[in-house]
Amino acid sequence: PPLQNNQPVEFNHAINYVNKIKNRFQGQPDIYKAFLEILHTYQKEQRNAKEAGSNYTPALTEQEVYTQVARLFKNQEDLLSEFGQFLPDA
C-alpha cells in the first residue's frame, strides 16, 4: 500500500514510545518482555481475525489489551495514557 502522509508521524511516535518503555523498565526486563508479549498476541489475533473474516472473535480485544497493559504499568500513569493514544477504540 502507498505510504500515507501521516504514517511517519505514527511510526516515530511508536519508536519514541517503545524507547521510553525500554528506558523506564531497564531494571525490570520482565515487565518490558511482558509488554512485548501482549502486543504480539494482539497482533496475532488481529491477523487471525483478518484471515477468518467477520465470523472470528479475537481472543484479545482492545479493551483486554488495555487492561493487561494497565496491570503491567501500574503506577506509570504517563505510559498508560500514552498507550491509550495508540489503541483503536480506546
Binding site: N6, Q7, E10, F11, H13, A14, I15, Y17, V18, N19, K22, F35, L36, L39, H40, Y42, Q43, Q46, Q85, F86, L87, P88, D89, A90
Partner: peptide, 27 residues
C-alpha cells in the same frame, strides 16, 4: 541513538499499525 533489537522493532511495528487502525476507524 536507539539500540533496538528485532523484538523492539516488531513492537514498533505493532504500535504503529495500531495507530493506523485507530485513525482509520476515526475517519
Amino acid at each position: 541513538s536507539y539500540d533496538f533489537t528485532p523484538l523492539d522493532s516488531s513492537a514498533v511495528y505493532v504500535l504503529s499499525s495500531m495507530a493506523r487502525r485507530r485513525r482509520a476507524s476515526q475517519s
